[in-house]
Design a protein around this nucleic acid. Sequence first.
DNA 1: CAAAACATGTCGGTTTATGGCATATTTTGC
DNA 2: GCAAAATATGCCATAAACCGACATGTTTTG
Lengths: 241, 241
Amino acid sequence: MPIRPQDRADRRDLLLRRLGDAPGITAATRAEEFGTGVRTIFRDLEALRERGYPIESSRGRGGGLRLAPRWGLGRVLLARDEALGALLAMATAEQLRPPMFADDLARARRRLLDAFPTSERRRLALLRQRVYVGSPASAAVAESWLEPRRSVMRALHIAFVETRVVDIMYRQAEGRDTQRTIEPHVILVNWPVWYRVAHDHLRDDVRTFRFDRILTVTVFLPCAQQMIDCATAGVAGLEPL
Amino acid sequence: MPIRPQDRADRRDLLLRRLGDAPGITAATRAEEFGTGVRTIFRDLEALRERGYPIESSRGRGGGLRLAPRWGLGRVLLARDEALGALLAMATAEQLRPPMFADDLARARRRLLDAFPTSERRRLALLRQRVYVGSPASAAVAESWLEPRRSVMRALHIAFVETRVVDIMYRQAEGRDTQRTIEPHVILVNWPVWYRVAHDHLRDDVRTFRFDRILTVTVFLPCAQQMIDCATAGVAGLEPL
DNA sequence: CAAAACATGTCGGTTTATGGCATATTTTGC
DNA sequence: GCAAAATATGCCATAAACCGACATGTTTTG
């Protein structure tokens, strides 16, 4: 079952992954596997090592090749939204002050940020400081927590990472619904209740809004004075420009 | 200031990033920037589009190229430990049941897992289920929380992801120190206090251990009956095989 | 000591990538 | 409406690279 990678780069990526997957295979076997010459495999190994992958080899009978076992992942390809979700999750976790993996986490966050275009990097770097984990909700408050609407959450998510101004319809504790124009600043977790801390334009004050009490969201698009009701229309039209 | 990428793959990655960074540049400018022909740039564009990157172009005066602005990061290169840290953070954040970015997060987690060698993937996929966020610590307990030792945490981190058996020296609430042989199962966060839930071999029971009360850690290495005191010797010797 | 494996050098043939040119198409400015 | 500017595509000769094969050296194991 020889594999035929399309590209040289392809072949090298594949080889790297195989080396991590199944250690101890000889170069000759790999050559057969990829339908190529042995020399090519060694050239690939050289190139990979030059790129910094710690490929180990043992000579003699029973020898073979392997990628140092606790090393390198191949490349991780994340779509933008996935990377954003990951960043937010990492920001949240960091707020819990994990004693165990904090260093690795910080480095991973920086790497993830580096993958964003420079124009966004600065903005997203601050995102971490906009998530807070507070003291937990009282039993009574936690009791009343409902699953928030997905469509509302999608819109709030975007408004949060883009720091856009939104109009929301908010159901107050007494049951009255009011319209607010707020500037989303900060997310606050009083577990299991999630809040948004925002500047309320109407009251000119900082208030907290429970996610599950936000009924509809309207995002203001700065570029076109356009308003798109994200709660009903989805977010497809949100591409700026 | 022409840049000279080493490789064709390199050049294409660079081009992709530039397209996201600075939109609206013309192909001719890019060619000059990379010290290559215009034709090559167009070929690169073709290849990148084939790979699925939504590169937009506008013709005519003032036209140019750009990557659709909210799209694709380039490749994210994470070292193994960084990826593990990210996974753990994401697991922790997921336990908080974030209403906002849960979907993206789950997808990102899967992508990250896919980058691990198949042998580890299954094991790491279960890692998510071994992190719990419980009800928060009482004021009295939170008050007594100390910063745990870094060296201890490093060792515990490894023992956790590898599910190794460890010997610990544990300081009980009354101040007595006892030696335990425990099997690390689960991490429990009663914010801000982090616990390890583990099976205690001596008592044959499941107990919780506060991170800040664990004084030393000794990790058992299954392969060589060897024991390495990670709290003092670091973890360099932990490479299995 | 011989076999097995990694590692490296060289060489000729082949493949591929590249750059230049021509050309079509779309958009914009005048 | 025309010229200029830009994307987009095809073709081709050439230069670069890649590759396989062979030779050779080195390390490890039985």
